[in-house]
Structure formats: C-alpha cells, structure tokens
C-alpha cells in the first residue's frame, strides 16, 4: 500500500528555507507529478520523501506509519534517478538484481524476478551487458527494472527523461504511463516539463519557491488555475496576460487568455493588431500579434492561418475563457 502523507514538512539548508511548511496527501495508486521551474524545491521534496535528506521539521507518513526517521533503505520506496545511477561495474542482470540481493532473496527467486522484469521492459537480450554498452533509453529501462523488482510501496522518479532526446522522451512517457496502469502502484514523478506533467499525472502538484501553488488534476489546473503562476506555467504556448485598462474592463488587475482561446479574423473583432512572427507547425500556427494599446499576444490558429508578417488582423477572446486575477496574482471567482 502506498499512501504517503506529508504533514507540515519544512526543509532548510543552513539559514535558507527551501521548503516552507507544506502539507500533502498522496493516495494509494495515484500518479502524482511535482512540477515547477528549476529551483522550486521539487527535487528536494522528492528526496525528503525518499529519506535521502532529513526534514527540518514536520512528519512524513508512509501507510499511516511515521517514517520521518526511517533510513531510505527501510522505507520500501524505489527511486529512478535523473542520471539513471546504474552501477557501471555490474551487468544489467546484476543491476536489476541488486535490491533483491540486498534483501537477501535467494538466487533462483532473484533470477526469476529479474527475467520477469526484463521481459516487461524489453531488456531480455541485454541482461549480460554492462550499462556502458547501452543506449540512453535502455539505461532508463534498466533503472526502472531495478525499481520494479523490489515491488515497492511507491516509485519515485526524479526527472527521469531529461537526459533523453525528444522522440525517445515521448516513448518512455508512454511506457511509464503503461507501467502505472498495469502495476497500479503509487508513483511520484518530478519534472520541470509541464507537458510530461499534463500527459502522465492523475494529480499535479505545482511548486513555486518551495510552496504548493496548486494541486489538482491536469484539466483542473488548465481550466481553473488558482493564480497567475499556475496559469502561466501550465499550457503551451503560455497564457497571454494583459494588465491595465483592458483588465480593468473585466474588473480585474490582470486578465489571462490562452492562445487557443483567441479567435482570429481579418474583418473585425475586439482587438486589432499587426502580425509579427508566425510559427508554422502544420497542424497549428502560432502567431505573435502586436495588438494596438495592449502589446504582444500569442494566438494559436488551427491549420495554416493565411496571415503573414505585417498583415493586420483582428482578435476576439472567448468570453467564457478569460481568467481574472487580482493584484496579488490570485484568481478571482
């Protein structure tokens, strides 16, 4: 069972408080993603859960038991590191078997489990190789294999895909999601990439400077961000923010509209501006429009928008999809 609860957890390095008091509940079987810009404390938070760092104050419960003082080796968690952290002097087989060897599992059982894991991860042909002879994706799989043979209470992933190239990243993302579907084990996944967060998570925890900015399902965060930080962090391209007079019309300090919620036309609309750079992706086109009296806005048009650099265009926001924020950056109901 992998229910994890953080109660008033704080972490300071010397005088610097990295994580102010934080509470979080992670249900059994959930796929939780910690996301935030670099330096937001997400990796530190994961290491606190792993036991690789001490909490400064507060409590960490695993399955209802206080695990705050339990050493990492006894917490029943498995971790996949950003650098994979494979043991370079051991074969793939020995790497995957290492946790079992530490748990004094007998050799026959060890081999059976290693081979089962290798089968799931398509590593059967590579069992006798050294990590140095594997590609990045294969190494990643070995790291995952090492984690699954332990049958842990929960998996911890620390930016596991950031060292892979873009195509491989998409593949591994799917594989990890499938793994979660089949194992139904709690997974905590740290990333700075909001796309990974959106595509994989049951629950996203957005962190900003050690604080939880918002917790919710991907679509909740997308639809109703509770503050400007989450609004700007989730979604790609980024949400457009408009301040001043135009925001005032909606009774807010700042308003935000996602690029996909702006309608483009040539013959009339709320705002008017000049088209700047147009980025053609084929399925979509991102247009950077300099709107008179407002500034630069990004607009997402379906397909190939027939507009070029320097053209005049009209833009209309979807009134239902305008997010309003007060001067502290909090969303207005």
């Amino acid at each position: 069972m992998g229910k994890i609860a953080l109660k008033h957890v704080t972490k300071s390095f010397g005088a610097t408080e990295v994580i102010p008091p934080l509470d979080l509940d992670i249900e059994d079987g959930e796929f939780v993603v910690f996301v935030g810009p670099s330096g937001c404390g997400k990796s530190t938070l994961l290491r606190l859960i792993a036991g690789l760092e001490d909490v400064t104050s507060g409590m960490i419960e695993i399955d209802g038991n206080d695990a705050t003082k339990v050493p990492p080796s006894k917490r029943g968690l498995a971790m996949v590191f950003q650098s994979y952290a494979l043991y370079p002097h051991m074969s793939v087989r020995k790497n995957i078997a290492f946790p079992l060897r530490m748990a004094k599992v007998d050799e026959a059982e060890r081999n059976r489990k290693v081979e089962a894991a290798a089968d799931i991860l398509n590593l059967t042909d590579y069992l006798e190789r050294r990590p140095g002879q594997l590609s990045g994706g294969q190494r990643q799989r070995v790291a995952i294999g090492r984690a699954i043979v332990r049958e842990p209470e929960a998996f911890l992933f620390d930016e596991p895909l950031s060292n892979l190239d873009a195509a491989l990243r998409v593949n591994m993302r799917l594989e990890i999601s499938e793994l979660h579907q089949s194992l139904k084990t709690t997974m905590i996944y740290v990333t700075h990439d909001q796309v990974e967060a959106m595509t994989m998570a049951d629950k996203i925890v957005v962190l900003n400077a050690g604080r939880i900015a918002q917790v919710g399902s991907p679509l909740e965060l997308y639809r109703s961000p509770q503050n400007i930080f989450v609004a700007g962090f989730i979604g790609s391209p980024k949400m457009n923010f408009i301040e001043g007079e135009e925001a005032g019309k909606h009774g807010a300090h700042t308003i935000g509209v996602r690029p996909e919620h702006l309608a483009l036309s040539t013959d009339g609309g709320t705002w008017e501006g000049t088209v700047g750079v147009a980025e053609h992706l084929g399925s979509d086109t991102f247009l950077h429009v300099h709107v008179d009296g407002i500034g630069a806005l990004t607009v997402r048009a379906q397909g190939e928008a027939g507009l070029n650099h320097g053209d005049r265009a009209h833009i209309t926001p979807d009134p239902e999809r305008i997010h309003r924020f007060d001067s502290d950056g909090l969303a207005l109901a």
Binding site: P72, S73, M79, F81, L86, F98
Partner: peptide, 9 residues
C-alpha cells in the same frame, strides 16, 4: 544514493 534506496546498508 541509488544503492541506499535499493536497501543497501
């Protein structure tokens, strides 16, 4: 750290 997570003393 990986070794520690893998249960090594």
């Amino acid at each position: 750290e990986a070794a520690r997570m893998d249960g090594a003393s």
